[in-house]
């Protein structure tokens, strides 16, 4: 294994952590952004036989440039299947998706997520995007991994709106509601990694990111957070994992300030896109992909 990287960003640490959750041979439902980075790292390191499905109708793509949204043309590149959303969403409802990455603006102790509104539903303080496919994946994927920012206010006692189900109000609740997917297995945030207790279904802190203090994590959670008796420090990304992410996303569009750099700068964008081909082809060849 490649040695640990000395220089890496927090988003790179999060993506590498999620990459370690993906097992070889699996079929994963992946959105763009950080989950895509995680999926690419997994494919190029520990899970070469893993493939991803993309929400608007693609399966098994192998792109050599950065996908920019779930219906992006890039998601068709060298794919095994392209076509309808009904195919991929139908397959995931029928249980063909092993793992899915989702996110939210708020989360509660049972891993339920809100990505719809902050404040009252009918008179929102902040209107957010809405479910998209997140509720569908949270309902039916065999397991979900949640990636989100932890800002000190968004790990709440009660959600303003429950968009995507975790374990609802605790043990047995998913079954009673008729949900057949397995629910969340991990929450990877800007502060640490959380798991869910098998008996209580409640989230506990399993790992803490390097340099983050436990008291700060506890202060950023609005309920009395359980902490693993074997609390570990999150494994840093390896040099190879960081190299893979920076090859696919050299301007840190997803993992840094790339979007600001590219706003209105067509030449910089096209240069990034046109020049992505050879480094990615070389990387794929070196991995036998």
């Amino acid at each position: 294994m490649s040695k640990y990287a000395e220089n890496y960003s927090l988003p790179e640490l999060m993506a590498a952590t999620v990459a370690r959750e993906i097992r070889d041979g699996e079929l994963a439902f992946i959105g763009v952004g950080m989950p895509l980075m995680a999926a690419t790292v997994a494919k190029f390191t520990t899970a070469p036989n893993f493939n991803m499905m993309v929400e608007y109708g693609a399966a098994g793509p192998s792109p050599r440039r950065l996908p920019m949204c779930v219906n992006c043309a890039v998601n068709c590149e060298r794919a095994y299947y392209t076509g309808s959303q009904r195919e991929v969403m139908g397959a995931q409802q029928a249980g063909f998706v092993d793992v899915a990455c989702i996110s939210g603006a708020q989360i509660d102790r049972f891993g339920n997520l809100n990505s719809s509104v902050i404040g009252e539903y009918k008179n929102p303080k902040v209107r957010l995007a809405g479910s998209g496919g997140a509720n569908d994946l949270a309902s039916s994927a065999n397991r979900t991994i949640i990636m989100m920012r932890q800002d000190g206010r968004n790990f709440v006692e009660k959600l303003d709106y429950l968009t995507s189900p975790g374990y609802l109000d605790g043990p047995g609740a998913r079954e009673r509601a008729g949900l057949h997917g397995g629910g969340p297995v991990a929450v990877v945030t800007t502060m640490g990694v959380y798991r869910f207790d098998a008996e209580t279904c409640e989230m506990y802190l399993e790992k803490i990111h390097p340099g983050v203090e436990l008291e700060k994590v506890k202060a950023a959670v609005k309920w009395d957070l359980a902490v693993s008796p074997n609390l570990e420090v999150t494994e840093p990304p390896t040099e190879e994992q960081v190299m893979i992410m920076r090859t696919l996303d050299p301007l840190a569009v997803y993992l840094g300030t790339g979007r600001a750099t590219l706003t209105g700068d067509f030449e910089a964008f096209m240069k990034m896109f046109e020049n992505s081909y050879q480094p990615m082809v070389d990387l794929m060849k070196s991995k036998g992909l």
């Binding site: 959303q85 997140a134 509720n135 569908d136 309902s139 609740a173 008729g178």
Partner: peptide
């Protein structure tokens, strides 16, 4: 949900009054 809205179009396309699905529960 995304699949929920898509299945509304699906029901419309099939000329039936509704579609059942396993999303949005709970």
């Amino acid at each position: 949900s995304n699949f929920g809205m898509a299945m509304r179009w699906q029901a419309g396309a099939l000329g039936i009054p509704y579609m059942p699905l396993k999303s949005m529960l709970g």
